[in-house]
Structure formats: structure tokens, C-alpha cells
Design a protein around this nucleic acid. Structure first.
Lengths: 218, 218
DNA sequence: TATAATTTTTAGATAAGGCTAAAAATAAAA
DNA sequence: TTTTATTTTTAGCCTTATCTAAAAATTATA
């Protein structure tokens, strides 16, 4: 069992590893966690003792399989709770992060298994990020921007890139949300604008809109 | 904002105050929290500084209005989460305590407001305990004996009057426990016997049984 | 009411997690 | 290849929440 602090370190290191290659530096972790490098050194040494990461002085750290699995599980919980908050409690996509940040540390595998089922075994969270399975595996996925689709292609909205209130309100008005199917009826190469179909409605969207919607196409 | 430990102390003291009258003793708190009296003294002094309770050396403590409200709010969260776990995630009523114990410390008034609405503004948790409102007030509730109910009335079992082993074993066999919903399908005025419904089962009970079950009816 | 028993508090210690300042190692620049 | 700059670690200290052991206050008993 890991403490709240330990879980947060593992999560941060997991995210950092996926963004860069090679060992993760102490300073990078300190930046990501808004803490001091000296605190990171202490914690990383403790986590190395617990076999969730390997650490070489002055050379940085990388998660072991056990560490990756633990981190992925925390991320799984975070993302499932985000789906719950948005789908069931009607929060907006941009309001859920801080709450999920707390909920992710509730310990109970049974709880998460049941929550997963209650939510219909979702594959993506409201930001379009994939939800790891109970073994910590993430289904390899093709997440594209709507703006990358061409005429006659279609997909399912899996998240938003920018999530300012005006944008979310626009999506609300157009009834676009996670899981909404969108078809590209036309695309103007001059300005990247599109005509799309959402349900029975067909309408025009600008390139700016299309560039902020994550789509899954398979 | 209160720490996890502070919230747990407030909650424990709140429960102890409702069970006894007068100030709560240091040892009573230590017992309730499975901690040492010396630890309680430290914490209680800290909480007195924060104006959530009044503390007189060697004389015990009692919550201030602020302390009561804070404690009631933690209890409100705990009980709402228990409803969620049982009603939505299909946990059994006796499996939810430990999980709710963690969930109750998630900080977000908006979350609780929305959860409350999602659950249909419940008044009681699965154990039959009342859920404080957002101001910390608990609706005064009427606890009756099952024998006082009439045909077509129903309620939730909130406790037993006599608790000898034979009686408890009988309840076990009939799947009656704290939180069990019981409906009175028929009542014989000659001997006070009843036909009741528990879950999907319908069966006969004597007056003696009915006189030993506390019910909450609303 | 003086003594014994119990309760409560204080003093000092520990573990987790974090910080500052200084030292050591590594990387970059001259 | 020295020297300088940056990164990382170490050492020592702080806070929160806990503990044990001893002292003090209160309560019970003789």
C-alpha cells in the first residue's frame, strides 16, 4: 500500500516517462510536483527501496514494472472518477480535475471494479485520455483532432484539447459531448472550416473548433 | 479547512456527545479513536485553538457550534457516499463503511451538492441513520417499534430493543439487519402478529418479534 | 480526611514529508 | 583541459500526528 504522497510521485514520474525517453531527472519531478529537488531525492530513495523505481544517484530514475502498474492504477482511478463526475453528476470537463485528484487515492479495488461497471466500462475519460485497464494496460488508441479528419470520415468525440468555459458552452449548445458521433460532410481547405453532422443536425464549424476536439476513429 | 485527523476527531467527539451528556472525556475519545489519551490531549488543544471545541484541562471538551457544524458535515458526506455505494454500486450495506470513511474526507461542497441531487436527496443512509442537511441540521426522526406500524406501512430497521443471541440469530436467518426495509403486508389485531415483506420474502412474525425491532418510518 | 486509584497532562521521541543552505557531482564553456 | 554553471545530494531543521514514560490533578476509598 502506498501513501498519498508516494502515489502522487509515481503518477508524476509515469507521466514524465511517457513524455520523454530515458531516466527522469530529479529537477523534472520537482517541477512537475511543485516541490524542491531535495524533497524529490528523499522520496525517490524511499520508492527505490520499495522496488517501484530504479534510481542511480545523479542519473535519475525510471519506474519498474511494479511502479508502472501502480501508477497506471492511480491514473485509472482518476480517469474513472472523472467520467463519473461528468457523466453522472453533470460537472463540466474542466471542473473535475481537482476532485478526481482526491478521489483517486481512495483505496478499494472492489469500489473501482463496481464504478467501472456502473459507468459502462468506459475507454476514455472526459478529456479524451484513455483509461488503463485493471492490469495497468492502456489500449493503444488513435486519438486525432477533428481538424485532421477529411470529408466523409467520421468518429466519436473522446475529449477536448482546450477547455475554457466559452468553448464548453458552445459544445453544450451544439450537443457535442463525450461519445458524440461526428461525421465530416465537407471540408474547406482554404480556411480549414468544416460542415459536420451531429445527430440530425448539420452545421458549420471553424478550424479553431475542429482543432480543439479529440476524436477516435475506429 | 481541517486535516483528515482533525475531521476524524470532530466526528468522534460529535458521536460521543450525542451518546452522553456533559463534556466528553479524554479517555472516551481515545477509546473511540483507538489512540492514546496523550495524543487526544494534544489534538484537543489544537482544536480548541481553532475554536471548534471548548476544552478545560482535566474537565473534558465539548464542541462549539462551529465544531458541530463541521462534524455534521463530515457525517453528511459519509452517509451520502454510503447511499451511493449501496444504491448505485450495489454494495451490501455492511461493506460500505470503510470506503465511506475515506470518501468522507474529499473536499468539495459542489461535489456533495451534486451527489445529494443525484441520489434524490435521501434522508437516511443504508443503516437507517439520518443524513444531516448542508447546514448540519438533522431532521428529528421518529423511531417506532415495528409492532406500532399498521398494515401497508413500511420503514427501515434501525435497531433492536432486546439483543439476546436467539433473537439476533432469528434476524440473521430472516435477513433482517440494520438498514433492512420492512413492509407490513398484514396485521392481526387479535394477537398482534404480522405478515411482513423483507426483500422478496414474505413471512409471518409474532408480536414478540415486532416489539423488539426499532423502525424508522418516512 | 488522608491515602490509593484513576484519569489526564506534560515531556521527550519517532516517522513521514517537506524546506533551506551548503557540499558534491556532472555538464557546459572558455 | 581547466574553469564556470548547473544539477543533485546531503545535512540539519520544521510540522503534523503519533507514541511511551513520568508527573500532576482528580476521584474514589478506607
Amino acid at each position: 500500500m502506498f501513501s498519498l504522497a508516494e502515489e502522487n510521485y509515481l503518477k508524476a514520474i509515469y507521466h514524465l516517462e511517457s513524455k520523454t525517453q530515458g531516466a527522469v531527472s530529479t529537477n523534472a519531478i520537482a517541477d512537475a510536483m511543485a516541490t524542491k529537488p531535495s524533497s524529490v531525492t528523499d522520496m525517490v530513495q524511499k520508492l527505490a527501496d520499495k522496488k517501484v523505481l530504479s534510481y542511480i544517484k545523479y542519473k535519475g530514475t525510471s519506474l519498474t514494472d511494479k511502479g508502472k502498474k501502480t501508477a497506471a492504477n492511480v491514473i485509472r482511478k482518476h480517469r474513472l472518477w472523472e467520467v463519473f463526475l461528468v457523466e453522472k453528476l453533470n460537472f463540466h470537463w474542466d471542473e473535475v480535475h481537482d476532485i478526481a485528484e482526491q478521489l483517486e487515492h481512495v483505496h478499494s479495488t472492489e469500489l473501482i471494479a463496481r464504478l467501472d461497471k456502473f459507468l459502462g466500462f468506459p475507454d476514455f475519460d472526459p478529456h479524451g485520455d484513455p483509461i488503463p485497464d485493471k492490469h495497468g494496460n492502456i489500449k493503444p488508441t488513435e486519438k486525432k483532432l477533428l481538424s485532421e479528419l477529411n470529408k466523409n470520415q467520421k468518429g466519436v468525440c473522446v475529449g477536448v484539447k482546450e477547455s475554457n468555459s466559452d468553448f464548453l458552452q458552445y459544445l453544450d449548445k451544439k450537443h457535442i459531448t463525450i461519445g458524440t458521433k461526428i461525421s465530416v460532410l465537407g471540408k474547406e481547405f482554404f480556411d480549414g472550416s468544416m460542415v459536420i453532422q451531429v445527430g440530425r443536425d448539420q452545421f458549420f464549424i471553424s478550424k479553431k473548433i475542429a482543432e480543439n476536439l479529440y476524436m477516435q476513429t475506429n
